[in-house]
Structure formats: C-alpha cells, structure tokens
Design a protein around this nucleic acid. Sequence first.
DNA 1: TCTAAAAAAGATATTAATGTCTTTTATGGG
DNA 2: CCCATAAAAGACATTAATATCTTTTTTAGA
Lengths: 147, 147
Amino acid sequence: MFLSKSFGYALRGVLYIALVDKDGRKVQLDEIAEKLSVPRHFLAKIMKMMVKEGILSSTKGPYGGFYLNEVTLKTKLIQLVKITDGVEQFNTCVLSLRKCNSKNPCPLHFQMLKLRDGMLAEFSAKKLGDLLDEKNPDFIKTISTIA
Amino acid sequence: MFLSKSFGYALRGVLYIALVDKDGRKVQLDEIAEKLSVPRHFLAKIMKMMVKEGILSSTKGPYGGFYLNEVTLKTKLIQLVKITDGVEQFNTCVLSLRKCNSKNPCPLHFQMLKLRDGMLAEFSAKKLGDLLDEKNPDFIKTISTIA
DNA sequence: TCTAAAAAAGATATTAATGTCTTTTATGGG
DNA sequence: CCCATAAAAGACATTAATATCTTTTTTAGA
C-alpha cells in the first residue's frame, strides 16, 4: 500500500548486513537472499542500486561481497525510499490531477497532504542506524521471519 | 503511492454524477469518461464494481445510465478504497513479514501503524457527501482538470 | 415486436513491478 | 598467468494494474 516490495527487500538487506557485520566482514548475496527468503536475483538488482547510490559498498571476486560504509547507517529512510521507489509519487495528486495544489485543491488534497507530510517526517527523521535495536537480541530473526 | 488509479477514477466518477445530478437524472458513462478525461472502458469496470457493491445505481438501455442512490453519499471513503483497492494491504507488513505484529514488530512496524491508522481514521471519518463543497462553484472543474 | 441505446460482460493489449536465468567483469590466491 | 569466486550487467519470464476493443444483455419507445 505505502511502499514497494523493493524497498522492503533493500531495507532488510542492509539491516541483515549490519547485524552480522563483524569487523567489516563482507556478506555475500547468496547468504542474504537465503536468510531473508528473498528472490536472489531480484535482490541483486536492489543491492546494486544501493551500491550505485553510494549508501552501500561491495567488491567482486573471492572474499568479496557487500559491506557497510561510512554513510550506510547515517542514511535516512527517505533516501532509501527515493532509491527504490522514486520520489515523484510524493508530489502527485491521488486523483491524478496535475493541477491539484493547495490553492486549487482536489477533494482529498489536504487529507493526502497530511498523510504524506506525516510519512515524510517519519522517514526523514529516522536513519538506518536508528533501526538497529540492540535491546532486541532476536532482531535478526525478526527481519528474517517471513513464514 | 497511497492509493490506486482505480480509486481516483471511482471517486471522481461518483462526484461527477453528484455534481451534475439534477432531479436524479441519469448520467452516461460516455459523458463521465469524456468530462473527466478517464479511459472509457476502464472507467466502465470501476463503475460496475461500485454498482455491484451497491454504493451506486444504474440502468441499461435508452435513458439509462448511472445515478446516486440512498447510500451513495453516506458511503465512507474507506469503503470505496475497499472496493477499488481491497483491504488486505492495510494489514500487511511493509517488509512483507507475515509474523510482524505489535508483539513481534518489524523495524518499521510502529511507524507504519501510525501512518496506517492515520489514514484509516481520515478515510473512516469522511463520507462521499462530505466532499461536495458547495462553497466552491468550480468544484466540478477541479475534479475534471487533469491537463 | 422491432430497434436503438446503454450498461454488463468478456477478451485482448499494454505497462510497470516483480522474479529468473545467463553472460560478463573484477579480484584474490595459487 | 590461471582459476575460482562473487558482483555487475543484461536478457527474458511472470504477474498485477491499467487500458482497449468486441459481444451480450437489458430496456425504452416506436
């Protein structure tokens, strides 16, 4: 409803790496996909996007894999949404009216604006690192359990 | 982002009828599709769904068309969302985790819950009739103008 | 009863999101 | 330099949403 599956996969992928990260060891796609029960090749595309955007790093070859970099945990959730889902949709009228705006509002303009701003606020305030809850030792299970 | 195009078309369709409604005269699909610049046959399906669900009426044949009934304007927005978009998505975890709930929350559970509840509240409080703003004489233009 | 009008129904097309498979490129170690 | 590994890249498949086109059913009126 609110966000794409790609976003969910991306977030879980990053969090998984963060959680198993020991001295910056790299994590392979195969492991992530398997542990999170996410389609391997589809996840590959999404991880690649994050690498391209610089919020995650990777190296090819033996002992290669994905790993966090300086910006990863400082990345705001909204930034991740932009990478996976794009940002146009935030500014488009729910009734597909191009001329809808606060001066010439559609019947749902202000309701949607409120929701949208609420979401933007939430997702702009939180960073990926904020989601790592040390108090929950089962956290990794939580992001893995889809069954 | 939040809702489908179908929902937008449905809402605009109903509102259009309400706005041109004179002594319960019926409005034809062709007129609605043209005035709202909405794909005719796609709109037909959506109107049909609303009729089937009882929140709108129609008759076939000459002088037939779509018209409001006793429940139309009393219909809550959330009901329309259910008809066009279904209701599953409201209860599904943004990370696709089936076991996600308030006792075993995913990292975004409470944020999403807040957004979702906000939306449900808004859309449960408003009825279609509430959207008819008599103070705005250009209202019909507003729901028509997509260019 | 016949005809025309209009919704209902159903078949097909397109597009975007999601998912799968294969080939290419880079890299560490022998 | 060669090989194995793993990401990057690209081709292809599937599914759901959106869109179009055709046929059927219902109805009002001549």
